[in-house]
Design a protein around this nucleic acid. Sequence first.
DNA 1: CTGTTAGCGCATTCAT
DNA 2: ATGAATGCGCTAACAG
Lengths: 346, 346
Amino acid sequence: MTKLTVKAIASHFNVSVSTVSKAIHDSHEISDELKRNIREYAKLNNYKPNRVALNLFNRNTKTIGVVIPNILNYFFVQVLYGIEKIADQRGYSIIICSTNESIEKEIKVLDFLSSGTVDGVIISTVLGETGLTDSNEHFSALLDRQIPMVMFDRVIEFIKCDKVMVDDFEAGYLATKYFLGTGCKIVAIINPLGNSYIGRLRIEGYKKALCENGIGPNDKLIVTISYQDDLELTIHSLLDFDKIDGILIFDELTLVKIMDIVQSKGYQIPKDISFIGFTNGELSKYVTPSATTVSQHGKFIGESSADKLIDRIEEECDTCNFETRIIKTSLIARESTLKPKEYGKA
Amino acid sequence: MTKLTVKAIASHFNVSVSTVSKAIHDSHEISDELKRNIREYAKLNNYKPNRVALNLFNRNTKTIGVVIPNILNYFFVQVLYGIEKIADQRGYSIIICSTNESIEKEIKVLDFLSSGTVDGVIISTVLGETGLTDSNEHFSALLDRQIPMVMFDRVIEFIKCDKVMVDDFEAGYLATKYFLGTGCKIVAIINPLGNSYIGRLRIEGYKKALCENGIGPNDKLIVTISYQDDLELTIHSLLDFDKIDGILIFDELTLVKIMDIVQSKGYQIPKDISFIGFTNGELSKYVTPSATTVSQHGKFIGESSADKLIDRIEEECDTCNFETRIIKTSLIARESTLKPKEYGKA
DNA sequence: CTGTTAGCGCATTCAT
DNA sequence: ATGAATGCGCTAACAG
């Protein structure tokens, strides 16, 4: 049986399509009997209005596009979870596109999403060379078409749209202070986030904390790595360089891998080296020793982004004052760091 | 600037819409000059054909719906990753719906997906009471509309459609044999999969292995748990019941949590109790001790499902001989089990 | 070479 | 109370 349409129903009852349409919408313009017959018939053959035709007619799709760099990253999955929750509540579906950290894929995906398939998009961008302004014109395509967009986490500073991010500066600052508060002297950073805005903010927070404690930041202690890098090598030369006793790592999986390597080299955690990571996921909880992490509240970021986007989609007046929401992080203390010393005591 | 349409371009050049359409499609019917002008103008104002209109016209959407019970479960994310990869390669987008293990949500989502938004769906069903035939009529809605569907992992036995699953019987069998081969005598099962088909298959495999070794299965050793259950209590009464030295757990996160509890009770893994889990994810790798698991090759399941679905969508003749693909599992041996004893040696 | 017409499936305004 | 006509944005068959 081919898909049932209003036209088919109409010809079955020898009436016009508009009569059928009205009957199905329970219009009072239609006689009760005919209405009942039509609706019964429709139900029986489980008629469903074609969504695509409705979308065309209504000039909206009630779906939002979500673009993330890596679906295997737990942080993004948490965000997805939050987005899905709100979207569902507010009657939207989500179409998910993974860019796999490829700028080409990001361009391709944004091109697709700007062709009318979605009412708005939520995006966390790939790690790229920033500063290259021309590499960001794929966002204007969306914006020019008046398609609302909210960026989260990995946002691009100078793009004008709503944003939801964490207080990364403060996160870097507090994590570093926490290290120092437990007696660490030489704190290093491992940054798998390239030259991204959020990475830079975290590093600035780190530097501020060091300065406040009279420690001059040493750029050799900040190592930026990429996906292909050999972690074993990286960590080896870092530990050779200085007597490091604290490492702040910007990504959960990298944290766990490095803790694994360091332990297999014979170091004790946290006695010899303390660790703090980001993204408070299951891994951080169940690794041994369990990892102290900065929770970015991924689910909440997702909820907030989705709410903001749908507000923007549905608002009548488009007053273009964009908002940047800053979500507070929290530090979850576990066993990969020492206990904070109590100051002010002799 | 409002969205550019063929009509707008047409009126700008004082030609008809079909001329514009042809020009944009580089038809040889249009004079080179006009064509050049139109195409230039289109590019300049970055015209993009409205996808929704095209979908209506073509009677397809080039997108597939994916329905999973829980997006926070790493196994499903792996599958998603595989699906996305193939979909992208073959020119499809995916729209993801999470049912959060709720049958109501599953019904709602399937209803949505059967309204023309997608060309086909890939689904892993919620854990439900099986046997209740009437609770499964929401699938017929899809099938009646000739919308291709492939079920993966948590499939429903008697629904007629393509399926991709793992050899769960063999997985249960081999895992149990592995336990016995390392000297375990009393092997228990913790099953968070309710009365699902795949759970039953794994248990049957387990029983077969026991029988082959002259051990009569004891149903008290098979405990089915649900999300709300208190794991601490569960494991407590299980360990009280008998001197268990091996536990097979059907889910990665549950495995890790239970290993955590058991260790905090003072048991040594694997000396006192051995563990084998399912879903070979990062958690199993980095937990301490690292966990022996049955790898279900989630990514491959996703790839296979997507390929099968798209084949089905695009095939001309709909010969209705449905296929059930069985993917082989592999057992990844790690530190949560003892070393297999070598038989045949004195 | 270019335009007219029709239709994808539906809802809505305006006649009757 | 019912139907005809129009349009959402696009393409394609058929005229001219």
